[in-house]
Design a protein around this nucleic acid. Structure first.
Lengths: 242, 242
DNA sequence: TTGCCAGAGTGAACGGCGTTCACCGAAATA
DNA sequence: TATTTCGGTGAACGCCGTTCACTCTGGCAA
């Protein structure tokens, strides 16, 4: 492992400066405000120079989106590692960290999770596993749920809901981390859907007509979901009968 | 009510032709492909002429998004009106219609629900009620759930989850349609979140790493949610104990 | 019927954009 | 020291949204 040469150091510094500029434009002016010319201007350069570092604007944006995803994942994992060892506490902390990051970085959240350009689809077809943004996220949330299930299986839907077809459909997820039980995979996906859906609706202002205090709704939904994992029979909504 | 003059007829025809062109570009090339010059070219016109009909490209896109929302809402309501009078059947049909439309019109779905340009936020601040896309949708799904609750209240989370703060937070929604009980408002929101989240994840290809057959997952989640509304104690995931 | 005018459309222009290409200087390498 | 590689420039092309001065024409009032 040799120390990077001077050229390499300068190059990576320039790359990060370009990405920082792109992010600044994203935050201040939205995704459409990201332009090679503006980035170059802020750096005291000309636009064609950026082509020495990225093959196109689209490639730069895609790489930026990947970086943002990693940042969000680190944020979530940090929350998990700070809260203790109880998987339930970890899941709660991770969900809250997810929402907090999204609220503090709405433009970045939108770029990272938004439907990216058509070209990205094909790109992601190839590497279903490691590279897909959603995958890295899923793994982080999946692990505590597996641990929870290992300690004490939580109530799950009956076999007529978790049928054979569903089991087959969840095969990719179940393979992704050892051998995940169908029940865990399914409950994980409902939780992830709720978390993503709620935060996404809030960020996109699709809740304002109905909810004045989204955090209250978020905490209720979180409590409801976690109650389901404790053995109490609960809806995602959190309905409980003992 | 007088018949529209000839001028007015020509004008509305041109307006729809412009919107149709914009939509065609959206479908074939994504949101970024919508350009006044391309629309005008397809119509055999020049770009500045469009300014006689729309004050800017952004205004055109916003209006198009509104139209798409209405189309989706009509699609969902049509499904509801076709399936019969049972609210449970209606909800199932509406949810499936929602997903079907999104799958058949992914570009339109993304535009309608996507985080629109910053300018639209301020616009939507003023008219929280009628004009917000999410609101019109909510109403459609909310009605059957109210009817269901009227016939037979379904199990809901205990009071420590549906606390006073949450009740206050849901005030806008509860006022939107007479006087909606907190329980109904909350369960409705969890259902809407699941529906939006699941479809949105599927459209954005954020499920591909985990799920090979999204319809199976959708049907399971739908069954789980509806089970909750029948009086069986069920999770959003659909866990049931009798 | 005649005259006017609102409204639709045009063409040129401005500035901004992504991208390509020929070119140049300096730094690393041989 | 000679050469190659790398980072950067400036000009250019074609696209874009938008503005503006202008023409033309269909409908309406006198």
């Amino acid at each position: 492992m040799t120390r990077p040469t001077r050229r390499e150091r300068l190059r990576t510094a320039t790359v990060t400066e370009i990405k920082d500029g792109a992010r600044r434009l994203l935050v201040t002016g939205g995704p459409e405000a990201i332009s090679l010319r503006a980035i170059a201007r802020d750096m005291g350069m000309t636009a064609p120079a950026i082509y020495r570092y990225f093959p196109s604007l689209e490639a730069l944006v895609i790489e930026l989106a990947g970086d943002l995803f990693d940042e969000l994942r680190r944020h979530v994992e940090h929350a998990r590692d700070t809260v203790g060892v109880d998987p339930l506490d970890q899941l709660a902390a991770m969900a809250r960290a997810f929402r907090d990051w999204a609220i503090q970085h709405p433009a970045e959240f939108t770029l990272a999770f938004g439907s990216t350009v058509p070209g990205m689809d094909a790109f992601q077809d190839g590497c279903l596993d490691e590279n897909h943004p959603g995958a890295r996220f899923g793994m982080a949330f999946l692990r505590p749920m597996i641990e929870l299930w290992r300690r004490a299986p939580f109530p799950t839907p009956p076999a007529d809901v978790l049928d054979r077809r569903l089991a087959a459909s969840l095969e990719p997820l179940r393979r992704a981390h050892g051998d995940v039980p169908v029940e865990v995979a399914y409950v994980f996906l409902t939780g992830w859907t709720m978390l993503y859906g709620l935060v996404s609706l809030e960020i996109n202002n699709h809740l304002r007509w109905a909810v004045s205090d989204p955090q209250a709704l978020f905490e209720a939904a979180l409590a409801g979901f976690l109650a389901q994992l404790t053995g109490a029979v609960a809806t995602p909504a959190g309905a409980v009968t003992r």
